[in-house]
Amino acid sequence: MRIPRIFHPEAITPGSEMALSDEAANHVARVLRMTVGQPLELFNGNNLTFQAEIVHADKKSVRVRAGESREDSRESPLYLHLGQVMSRGEKMEFTIQKAVELGVNAITPLFSERCGVKLDAERLAKKIQQWQKIVIAACEQCGRNSVPEVREAMTLATWCAEQDDGLKLNLHPRASQSINTLPLPVERVRLLIGPEGGLSSDEISMTSGYGFTDILLGPRVLRTETTALTAITALQVRFGDLG
């Protein structure tokens, strides 16, 4: 059986005992039904893994003893920052989960003119927390030991105006360039994915003014969640560590 991987958000010292977070403890004790003496693998986001053993487990808490650390980077040489205009319900969660598996380093949820998501500040904050948990779970599953950040949501204009020395890309169905025609090498990409209804003409003009390059993925019109994952995959194949 595969040894479960658990994210521990605090410092880990080899040889020390520590309590898992309530959520991790619930997963280990209630879902996986693990008991004293069984092994775990811990990571805390700094590209290190720690072999660990359960020393106490009940329905309310789990304590583990950490073993030696090992550096284990699964990160792509391509740094990818995804700016995703928020989509409804499970579509956004699916996009975030799969983007992490494909190697995205940062995710910024965006508001645009045609964004179909309307949330007040309290509900938006809860969404950000929920999305960050999805990121952590995706890292536990796919083997990444560095945890991408879900940043605070912002307007499309604010995100486009941020300083970034990397290549800036905007998917556009009438663009003349494709990812395969982009010149090598590229180490950083800021990738913009619009809403289900697409960006408005004013927004497309605005992105151009901030140095974004319009690119085309292919002859078919893709849903927003399909667009994000297809573009990330194509970028990792050309500039990163896929293929």
Rank of each mutant, 00 (worst) to 15 (best):
D72G: 10
D72E: 11
D72S: 14
S73N: 12
S73Q: 09
R74F: 14
R74W: 12
R74E: 11
E75L: 12
E75Y: 06
P77Y: 08
P77V: 04
P77K: 07
P77D: 06
P77H: 03
P77F: 10
L78W: 02
L78Q: 04
Y79P: 00
Y79L: 08
Y79V: 08
L80P: 00
L80T: 05
L80S: 04
L80A: 01
L80E: 01
L80I: 15
H81V: 07
H81F: 09
H81G: 04
H81K: 08
H81D: 07
H81I: 06
H81R: 14
H81P: 03
H81E: 13
L82N: 04
G83K: 01
G83L: 14
G83A: 15
Q84N: 08
Q84V: 06
Q84K: 07
Q84P: 05
Q84F: 05
Q84G: 02
V85K: 04
V85L: 10
V85N: 04
V85D: 02
M86W: 06
M86P: 02
M86Q: 04
S87T: 13
S87M: 04
S87A: 12
R88M: 04
R88W: 05
R88N: 05
G89N: 13
G89L: 04
G89Q: 05
G89Y: 09
G89E: 08
E90P: 02
E90V: 08
E90L: 03
E90M: 07
E90C: 09
E90Q: 15
E90N: 13
K91A: 08
K91P: 06
K91N: 08
K91Q: 10
K91L: 05
K91Y: 08
M92L: 15
E93M: 01
E93V: 15
E93Y: 11
E93N: 11
E93K: 15
E93I: 10
F94P: 01
F94R: 11
T95C: 11
I96C: 03
I96E: 03
Q97H: 15
K98L: 15
K98P: 12
K98S: 07
K98R: 14
A99R: 09
A99S: 15
A99H: 09
A99E: 09
A99F: 14
V100K: 00
V100L: 10
V100W: 08
V100H: 02
E101W: 12
E101S: 07
E101M: 12
E101R: 13
E101G: 11
E101K: 05
L102K: 01
L102T: 08
L102Q: 03
L102A: 03
L102F: 12
G103S: 08
V104Q: 02
V104E: 03
V104D: 09
V104G: 05
N105P: 00
N105W: 02
N105H: 13
N105D: 14
N105M: 04
A106R: 14
A106V: 04
